[in-house]
Amino acid sequence: MKIFARTALAIVGGYVGTSAIIAALAMIAVAMVGMERSEAATLGAMLGFVIYLGVMIWSFAEPALIRVTLWLGAVTALSLTLVLLLSRLPS
């Protein structure tokens, strides 16, 4: 059961979290750094693989699963808030 939770967190939670993080990063790159849209989107997606790998390994390696859950949840929530805020900016 514990292994199932860990695997689910690594694969599903990691994917959702990574998607939120790269969405926020891409929007920040466009809004604040002035990167071109296509470049920010491409760079964000490529970073996604690295971030996802990191999250996966961490959730498998960390003894206290709750720590990963809380951190990942917090970063995902923060990223989604940023996405919402930035999408209100006039493009």
Partner: peptide
């Protein structure tokens, strides 16, 4: 192998910056 299909596997960064006109990504990229 993963990076080839970046827009399939991690489309959220494209959705985020293009919002309603995702098809423009192909034209611009």
């Amino acid at each position: 192998g993963l990076v080839i299909l970046f827009s399939l596997y991690f489309p959220s960064s494209i959705w985020a910056v293009y919002r309603q006109d995702v098809r423009l990504f192909g034209r611009e990229a």
